[in-house]
Simulated assay, not measured.
Amino acid sequence: MTALRSERTYQARLLRIEEVPARSWLPLLGERDLFLLPGWMEVGPGTYGGGLRDARAALVDRDGTAVAGTAGWLFGRDCTEDLCRPDVLLEIPEPHGAPLFPTLLAGGWYDSRVAHRPGGAGPAELAAVVDSLEEWGRSEGAASVCWPSVDERERDLVALLGERGYRRFPLTPRWALEGPWTGFDDYLARMTSKRRVSVRSERRRVREAGITCRTVPLTRELARPLVELAEENVTRHGGRVDLDRYADWVAALTGIDDGRAEAHLAERDGRILGCVVSSTYAGRVYALFPGFDYEQIAGLPVYFELAYYHLVEHAAAHGYHAVEYGPAADEAKNLRGCVAHRQALWIRGLDPAAERLVAELAAEAAETTTDGTTADNPQAGRST
């Protein structure tokens, strides 16, 4: 336990995830903090990839009241989940990224951030959270600390990480459809007339092919068939999936009380041809991953129908005001009204070998293109 003193009394507590007091933690969470819900932290980002050594939450109190906190997960090199591996995110070929491990993943793999009470966390509180995780990482032999997906809107956190010696590596943006919508016609009315014609055509082709979409609660029984569809999507884009671990992870999502998990299904004659698994929190629908039987949907815009149009209808019907997506498929998302949110990976080495590697990567990334801009690094992993 570390006490940080200024004009007020600050206290940083490092807790096991399962010991986080919900009464203190939940008031810190805003609508972007799905993955910092207690249930989500226990499931953990990427734990289906193995290699998880330990997990902790850093909680900072001011004058006896919790004011800021986040979580960290310690991974070994044997983790097979790309989104938890800084070497994969930074496109470092094997085995050159070995000095980064073990690595401490901070803030969550999606929208990595520090949760705080409304009004923002002060500099001392924010620093206490970051320092507490770093101290824990060092004590556990972590070679590096990585905040894998920091939104550029997190200006205070970005400034602090820069001051602490972290290096910034731009990533492709995440996307979101921002409502609210009174219904699908309301969503459609916000498009150009040309786009409206295109969307109606896509929906008509799907219906004429006998494919319908519906939403059901995610169940353990659905986990395996949906993961098998997801595997098709991942391998199609050059990724990898451990089916057994991934199915166990999806099944575990059904036990999270907050952040309701649902399966959005595209079906024909009772057969599931496509899926999007989502979780909903504070009025935002988070599209976690898609999966499709590409042989059965060849030539049909089922992805657009299920991942965009059906999700908008679902959100409007239940009073949700946004749909969150991951990176990739930028053109498809832009054409369907999504807004891009820029993000970056921030990383620092805790030992000399890791820091040398990070410094070398930063020097290479600083090489600019002919127009004077720095090229963004692509982000690996699954996304909707």
Rank of each mutant, 00 (worst) to 15 (best):
D376N: 12
D248T: 02
G238M: 04
L133H: 00
D186T: 11
V358W: 08
P95A: 05
Q11W: 12
V339P: 10
P352A: 01
V312C: 00
R190P: 03
A209S: 13
L15G: 06
G372S: 11
Y286W: 14
T103S: 01
L273S: 01
C338G: 11
A12V: 13
V43Q: 14
G30Y: 06
R236W: 07
W40A: 01
G69M: 05
T370P: 14
H264G: 05
E231M: 14
S383Y: 07
G179M: 09
R77E: 14
R224V: 09
L90M: 09
R16G: 13
R85H: 01
A142V: 04
A98S: 10
R16Q: 15
E42T: 13
L100A: 00
I272E: 03
A375P: 11
G165P: 12
T235E: 12
G179D: 05
R13N: 07
G69N: 04
V43R: 14
L300V: 06
A359M: 12
L83M: 11
I297F: 03
Y325A: 07
S132Y: 06
A55P: 07
R342F: 10
E331N: 14
L74N: 00
A22H: 07
L229V: 04
M191V: 02
T2N: 15
A365I: 06
E18A: 15
R236Q: 08
R284N: 02
T215F: 03
T215C: 02
A223D: 12
L288F: 08
G76S: 06
S278I: 13
R195T: 10
H116N: 11
V227P: 11
V312R: 00
L37S: 01
Y110H: 14
D244E: 12
F35T: 04
W346Y: 13
A317N: 02
N377F: 09
R53I: 02
G162H: 12
C79S: 07
V129A: 04
L157F: 04
R113H: 13
F184K: 02
V276L: 08
V323Q: 02
R207L: 13
V150W: 03
Y286A: 10
L288S: 06
H264I: 04
Y286Q: 15
A380Y: 09
R117F: 05
D61I: 07
R138T: 10
Y303G: 08
L288V: 12
W175H: 13
Y281A: 03
L37H: 01
H237Y: 07
P102N: 04
P170W: 10
S198Y: 10
E7H: 15
D78C: 05
A251M: 05
S132W: 01
G283K: 07
S139G: 13
A344M: 05
G46N: 02
I347G: 01
E202N: 02
F169L: 07
R13M: 04
D54L: 03
Y187F: 13
G238A: 02
T172M: 08
R240Q: 02
S24H: 11
S24T: 11
P45C: 01
E262C: 06
D186H: 14
E81K: 06
G107E: 05
E324T: 06
L171Q: 15
A328L: 10
L37Y: 01
Y166P: 09
E221Y: 09
A58L: 07
G120C: 05
Y309V: 00
W40L: 00
L171Y: 15
